[in-house]
């Protein structure tokens, strides 16, 4: 099964007695947009951190493009772009300088800064300090920082968190273009189903670190005994866990942190 871009086998993470990720098995295909869906605290961020080698799994193992991130973190990090939730940019630097710094950290000699800025629509603001940017612009700069290293895989953690409806639409549009134009595989984490369902081909629904269901949205909806409506499906899986999570169906402008 080496064709999978990301594979996890029984991946687990415990902090003390608390299990954050519990025996997770995932397989992500190249070129797809994969949604990690779940309420706050479901273990989405922890999973991504383990895949990047930034956090050590307590059990199980994982492979990112055939590489074990625990053994060769640098190899994984050079191939994978990661946009953390609530990620920050250097406020005193311009967008261009931020990108140049990131390219420098990746040892890229001639980074395609202008193209990246063009792609995320920041060309006109390229030489303004990032501190003056709106939240949406900063988020797009964050995406450009992922793209500057020419990754083959991108982990986007709550990329639409705190954006207004326009910002969300722009961001999703961008994310949707990337697999087609750059051949990227994207793993997208969110607690908002209706956002993920707009771009993701397949999703995994997580709650309290456990995988509840995985498959294309159509597959999940077509499961016997379930109504067609995807939100109802999502709610169904969460309800099976005894969790009523109105925030997962929140409005597009919904803000608030996600520790998961």
């Amino acid at each position: 099964m080496t064709t999978h871009v990301v594979e996890t086998f029984g991946l687990s993470k415990r902090y003390g007695r608390e299990t954050v990720v519990d025996n997770l098995n995932l397989a992500i295909e190249p070129g797809e947009i994969f949604g990690l869906l779940g309420p706050n605290g479901a273990g989405k961020t922890t999973t991504l951190l383990m895949l990047l080698g930034l956090s050590e799994p307590s059990g199980g193992h994982c492979a990112v493009m055939g590489v074990n991130p625990l053994k060769s973190p640098l190899e994984v990090k050079s191939k994978v772009g990661y946009m953390a939730e609530n990620m920050g940019v250097y406020a005193d630097l311009t967008a261009r300088e931020n990108l140049r710094f990131l390219a420098g950290l990746n040892g890229i000699k001639n980074p395609a800064i202008d193209e990246c800025l063009e792609l995320v629509g920041l060309t006109s603001a390229a030489d303004k300090k990032a501190g003056t940017y709106s939240r949406g612009m900063r988020q797009r700069l964050g995406l450009a920082e992922v793209l500057i290293k020419n990754p083959r895989l991108a982990f986007l953690d709550e990329p639409t968190l705190g954006l207004d409806p326009d910002g969300i639409a722009t961001m999703l549009e961008l994310i949707e273009r990337l697999p087609r134009e750059k051949g990227l595989t994207i793993v997208l984490s969110s607690h908002l189903l209706h956002l993920v369902s707009r771009v993701a081909g397949r999703v995994a629904i997580l709650n309290r670190g456990r995988l509840l269901a995985m498959g294309s949205l159509a597959d999940l909806a077509a499961k016997p005994g379930l109504p067609e409506d995807l939100e109802t499906v999502y709610r169904h899986y969460l309800k099976a866990e005894g969790l009523e999570a109105p925030e997962v169906l929140g409005d597009p402008g919904a803000t608030g942190g996600d520790a998961g």
């Binding site: 640098l74 190899e75 990620m87 250097y90 990131l102 950290l105």
Partner: peptide, 11 residues
């Protein structure tokens, strides 16, 4: 929020 970004680069 820039630390996690820096640490997710290959350094």
């Amino acid at each position: 929020g820039t630390l996690s970004k820096v640490l997710s680069q290959p350094i």
